[in-house]
Amino acid sequence: MNNKSIDNVKNIVKTLNEQVPNLIKFNGEVAKQLFLKDEFNLNGKVDISVERKFLGEVLKHIPNIHRIILHDTERASSQYEELDFSKVTHAEIFDDEKLIMTIIVYDVENEEWMFRWNHNIRLPEKNIYFHSIKWDVDYIKPEIVLMYELLDPIDYHQLPNYRSVIDSLSYYQFVILRLVVGDERINQALISEKKAI
């Protein structure tokens, strides 16, 4: 990512942290690095998660110079009225033609987070994230990040680091991941990571 795009990502994150800090949770590589090393690295594409009912509020704080594409389960569009908002899965933020941020939408019912691919998998919403005291940001727990990365077709555009994250999970976190994605998918991910390195 070029310096202009990195600066734009940092500006978006700064604005969101100032305006709507309680509505966003860092996801993807940023969340994994916060978990593994307590590092808050914004020098690449940034993924955040937002509860569906707050997506509009968060999008209001993305500067108009960026192109926003919403994706639902059937199509993608920058024209919000063309999509079924209840089916929006994520939004992509572009700096010129460079993808700089993905906003992943999640649903909550009765204060329980629901896994997008199986609404029977639920956790109390307060149990899906950690808080970094050092950086004063919330981030999605690593087992949930991996659930999406291993099963979700969203292209996360990052080098895999499954082994280091999986090795750092507690027994409880690993069991949750394993129950959701299965041993075969975990093993496939570890093999593909080894090939990518």
Score class of each variant (00 low, 15 high):
1 M>F: 10
4 K>A: 01
6 I>S: 01
6 I>Q: 04
8 N>M: 08
8 N>F: 09
9 V>Q: 02
13 V>H: 00
14 K>S: 14
15 T>K: 13
15 T>C: 15
16 L>G: 08
16 L>A: 05
17 N>H: 00
18 E>W: 02
19 Q>E: 12
21 P>N: 03
21 P>L: 05
22 N>G: 06
26 F>Q: 02
32 K>I: 06
32 K>D: 08
36 L>R: 00
36 L>K: 08
37 K>I: 04
42 L>C: 07
42 L>S: 08
44 G>W: 13
44 G>M: 08
44 G>S: 09
45 K>Q: 14
46 V>G: 08
47 D>L: 02
47 D>R: 01
48 I>A: 13
50 V>D: 03
50 V>I: 15
54 F>N: 12
54 F>Q: 09
55 L>R: 15
55 L>I: 12
57 E>F: 04
57 E>H: 06
62 I>K: 05
64 N>I: 07
64 N>M: 03
66 H>L: 05
69 I>S: 04
72 D>H: 09
72 D>S: 00
73 T>N: 04
74 E>S: 04
75 R>A: 00
75 R>P: 06
78 S>R: 06
79 Q>I: 07
80 Y>K: 06
81 E>L: 00
82 E>Q: 05
83 L>A: 09
83 L>R: 06
85 F>P: 10
85 F>Y: 14
86 S>K: 01
87 K>D: 15
87 K>A: 15
87 K>R: 15
91 A>S: 11
94 F>R: 12
97 E>F: 11
98 K>L: 11
98 K>E: 13
99 L>D: 08
100 I>C: 02
101 M>D: 06
107 D>S: 15
108 V>L: 03
108 V>T: 04
109 E>G: 01
110 N>E: 05
114 M>S: 13
114 M>R: 15
114 M>E: 09
117 W>G: 14
118 N>H: 14
120 N>L: 00
122 R>N: 06
124 P>N: 11
125 E>M: 14
125 E>I: 09
126 K>F: 07
126 K>L: 03
127 N>T: 11
127 N>A: 04
127 N>V: 00
128 I>W: 07
128 I>Q: 12
130 F>D: 07
131 H>D: 01
132 S>F: 09
133 I>S: 03
134 K>N: 13
137 V>N: 14
138 D>C: 06
140 I>Q: 02
141 K>S: 05
142 P>W: 11
145 V>K: 03
146 L>H: 02
146 L>Y: 01
147 M>G: 02
148 Y>W: 00
149 E>D: 13
151 L>Y: 07
151 L>M: 12
151 L>H: 04
153 P>C: 09
153 P>H: 07
155 D>L: 15
157 H>A: 02
160 P>K: 07
160 P>L: 00
160 P>E: 02
164 S>E: 15
164 S>A: 10
164 S>W: 06
164 S>T: 14
166 I>H: 11
167 D>L: 14
167 D>I: 14
169 L>V: 02
172 Y>S: 10
178 R>N: 15
180 V>P: 11
180 V>D: 07
181 V>S: 01
183 D>Y: 12
184 E>H: 10
186 I>S: 15
187 N>Y: 13
187 N>Q: 09
188 Q>K: 11
188 Q>M: 02
188 Q>A: 03
190 L>V: 10
192 S>F: 06
194 K>W: 03
195 K>F: 15
195 K>Y: 14
197 I>R: 12
